[in-house]
Design a protein around this nucleic acid. Structure first.
Length: 148
RNA sequence: GAGAGUAGGGGUAGGCGGUUGCAGAGUAGCGAAAGCUAGUCUGAGGAAAGUCCGGGCUCCCGAAAGACCGAACUUGCUGGGUAACGCCCAGUGCGAGCGAUCGUGAGGAUAGUGCCACAGAAAGAUACCGCCAGAAUAGGGACUGGGGGCUAGGGACUGGGUGCUAGGGAAGAAAUUUCCCAAUACCCAAUACCCAAUACCCAAUCCCCUAUCUUUGGUAAGGGUGCAAAGGUGCGGUAAGAGCGCACCAGCAACGUCGAGAGGCGUUGGCUCGGUAAACCCCGGUUGGGAGCAAGGUGGAAGGAACUAUGGUUGGUCUUUUACCAGUUCCGUUAUUAGGUACCGCUAGAGGCAUCUGGUAACAGGUGUCCCAGAUAGAUAACUGCCCUCUUAGCUUGUAUAGUUAAGAGAACAGAACCCGGCUUAUGACUUGCUCUCUCCC
RNA sequence: GGCGGCAUAGCCAAGUGGUAAGGCAGAGGUCUGCAAAACCUUCACCCCCAGUUCGAAUCUGGGUGCCGCCU
């Protein structure tokens, strides 16, 4: 994966929370689910010691706002077998999406959980198309840093 | 020379870089540690795929590995190779092809059972039609006897007529109905045939021939049916036929010989009882059974449960301590785990490469050298420069070719998930062998 | 990743190697003044490719697609 491990979304709980509560935006080939991590509940219950970066939260129970701002945005990809039967095609799309996301990473605000769902038409797309659509989606969801 | 087909072969996201970035392992520096920074090395395939076989490895069950029985496997020409295999190599037989070559699931159908639809007499023994012989019956011929027959004509045949019944056909609801055909009988006519003791008639003989909705036997040549009909073809033979005899071919058995063997060749013999075992089965062979790295193991944390012997803590009894009673489950102890997580399992191996020796080969052995992925929401990506190759278009050269310019492409099948050995399936370009077709030259 | 199962008409499905039952739906017809019901007729590349067999939906091998279970 062409992303640092801190920016990957791995847990089943995170995925199910996203699909239950997250907002949704879509383009012809992609669908974005985004969720901003809330302060109290997350830090109190879930994010105890799962990630090594979040292990510092135990030490700083006094100011949760600073801890939350230090949480990096994490991103996952969902691509089903309906997109293509061939694992080669699916893995290639995943790699290209990760590369595109990495290129946009400096502009992304911290503290977001993102999942990109790939639609079946995306097998025809090129890298530049993914890059453009991903940027459009992130702007639409107001995940970028420059909005405030 | 071109095109097509077929069977292989090794190798392959072409080579050398740049920027950003990912995973693993070392090194150096900083740091108490976690970690951070710099730089080095390595980083998917021949099928990684399908999960069809064989092993390693792990756990569960059973047992103490020997024999017998049973069960399972569904393996099955011979010899060799391999850790093992249903795999590989070499051969044998059979089949396909003009050929190169290819295919082969290749024990047993007289161990038994089953099945072989429809058709056909019969689908394991039967006799439908047929062929032949005998008997019986009928007819004819021949022979014998009698009549004819003591007269000169007679007989047969043909035609016509009459009559009636057995029978056949048509009509009809049916009838003892009607109509038509009509053997025999009687009469007439004509004559070309036969005849002199003959023709003709009757009887007997059972000698010969013919026929039968008859019967007894022989036969399996022929017919028809079917995927398949009882070794095939030809000649002889026979009442008709038949391996009944012979020749050739096919098959079986015995013997001889060659071979390590499957089998090959030759001689002789009796003539030889369909197909199907990817139907059950028999024989031979092999095997402890099952599950599979999401196997399995370790650690910490968390949850609820139990325990108050000891300790902590809260309340009470008590003048106080000790002690006692009650509560609590925050700490503790014990066993436990529905799920999540970290680590181990995890990659040095029936390993790769080079070379030598043995072997036809598969393969084996020796020597040297190398370390070559280890992820876990799952690592190889994105952009780009130069060279090289190919394709297309243009230009130069008398043409093929070659050179040059521009554009495009660098592919198909496809992504490690515990690891090996095979098989199967999918595949672009290159290359090798062979076959076929067309054209040109000798 | 591993293990297992299924595929028959538009749908649900039965099927011993020998002509592929049945129901629902669709189409056509009979009946009716018109309908409904009823009756009759019609509708199949048995997922695909090879093999065994005289003959495969069925037996054997390979492939394709779909579904389920194990964390």
């Amino acid at each position: 994966m062409a992303l640092p491990k801190a920016h990957r979304l791995k847990n089943r709980q995170d995925f199910s929370a996203l699909f239950r509560k997250g907002m949704r935006c879509s383009t012809p080939h992609l669908t974005l689910r985004a969720l901003r991590q809330s302060a109290k509940v997350e830090s109190g219950k879930q994010s105890l010691s799962r990630l090594p970066t979040a292990a510092a939260t135990a030490a700083q129970g006094n100011d949760t706002a600073i801890a939350q701002s230090q949480l990096p945005s994490r991103m996952g990809i969902s691509i089903s077998q309906k997109v293509s039967k061939r694992a080669v095609v699916r893995n290639r799309i995943k790699r290209q999406l990760k590369a595109a996301f990495r290129q946009l990473l400096p502009k992304v605000a911290p503290g977001w959980l993102l999942v990109i769902v790939v639609k079946p038409l995306a097998t025809q797309c090129e890298y530049h198309q993914f890059l453009q659509e991903l940027e459009q989606l992130l702007v639409e969801a107001e995940v970028f840093n420059g909005y405030s």
